[in-house]
Simulated scan of single mutants.
Amino acid sequence: MQSAAFAVSPSTPLLRSRSSIPKPNPRCRIISTFPAARQAVSLIRDGPGPIRSLSPRLGGWNAVSVSSLPSRPDLAVKATSVPESAGESSAKSNELVQTLQLGSLFGLWYLFNIYFNIYNKQVLKVFPNPLTITTCQFLVGTVLILFMWITNIYKSPKITSSQLVAILPLAMVHTLGNLFTNMSLGKVAVSFTHTIKAMEPFFSVLLSAMFLGEQPSIWVLFSLAPIVGGVALASMTEASFNWAGFWSAMASNLTFQSRNVLSKKVMVKKDESLDNINLFSIITIMSLFLLTPFTLFIEGVKFTPSYLQSAGLNINQIYLRSLIAGLCFHAYQQVSYMILSRVSPVTHSVGNCVKRVVVIVTSVLFFRTPVSPINSIGTGIALAGVFLYSRVKKIKPKTA
């Protein structure tokens, strides 16, 4: 028998000498040691037909059916498809999370507002110094803002001198708006102050038409009628009515809506603009510096322990309630801007209307404010008008 290396294959039964046998491709040796790789190469080569494998032959490879190979479940190649419902369930889950977050923000907005009005009213009843109380609220807000900026809880803005000049009018009307609100809360019931403040849409339409050239639609004008009529009816039958409290609340409406109109003309260039939260933060700090000199000149330093003790007041109680009111004052406005960044202005306006209803009902129950049937009807009509206004506001007015 001749000493020669040979190999037998069903397709090539002849004998060949070593010199006549072509050398196999090195890549084929690598593939031959990995049955899974053989299957993958065959699948790519032969397309979607029956999966084939490669078997060695002289000088090359023969393709044979996979069915002829030993069964290897661990090497089986399976194609799995992603269910179409997987993407839908993920989207629904994200939507649910966002809805829960938004609902939590609305709940915090209402809760902080309720606590602010209750504790603020309790302090103003025994310490009728609205300038001092408002200054303390701006001080608490300023401390919170600086803490957030220093600790990078919220990124501090880069402010230029031109921006500060543009923001100054906003800070002035913001200061007056909060001062007039506290003056009204100190004179009349919380529920009546918020009933009068339901006339904010009236001043918004008036000032927008005067300074922005916005012509309101007929539906907006129609919604103002129940607001004005409801406030007038509630004022005629209000047990705690006095003109100082009434005009202070009206002045608060005027100044706050002036702030909203002015804010539309500030920060026109987008590259220099501030987000709502940082803009509110800058306004709060500027309001503190604007109001402090007037407070010291008009009311003096009356929030010291010695003065409160001489007035027969509970020092710890006054300080604690003032601190809670200041924290809630800043918190509810911050949350309000957070909500505004997530929803449309119309939705935010509807939420603000509901918030006013919640505050009025809560204050009436907490302070046991006497409310006549006609007063309740007037308040209800005014709030219904505010709700109607917020719904028809989505009809864009014509620009003059």
Rank of each mutant, 00 (worst) to 15 (best):
K355E: 06
I30A: 13
P370G: 01
N260H: 11
A198G: 14
S204E: 03
L290V: 07
M199H: 04
G59C: 06
Y307E: 09
C28Y: 02
Y337K: 00
L313R: 12
S336P: 05
A4W: 02
T347C: 10
L164T: 00
T284I: 03
I218G: 03
R72G: 07
I167N: 00
S204R: 11
E238R: 13
S19R: 11
I374G: 05
M236T: 09
P373E: 00
S204A: 13
T362D: 01
L144H: 08
A325K: 03
M199L: 09
N113G: 12
V335F: 03
N152T: 14
Q215F: 12
I30C: 08
A91W: 10
T237S: 07
M236S: 06
R45D: 02
F329S: 06
N260Y: 14
R18S: 15
N62P: 05
V123A: 04
D271M: 08
P10W: 14
E272Q: 15
G59T: 02
K355N: 10
D271Y: 08
Y110R: 08
K394N: 09
L14T: 11
A36L: 05
F202L: 12
S71I: 06
L54Y: 04
A171Q: 00
G177N: 11
A86N: 15
V123L: 02
F294V: 05
W247K: 15
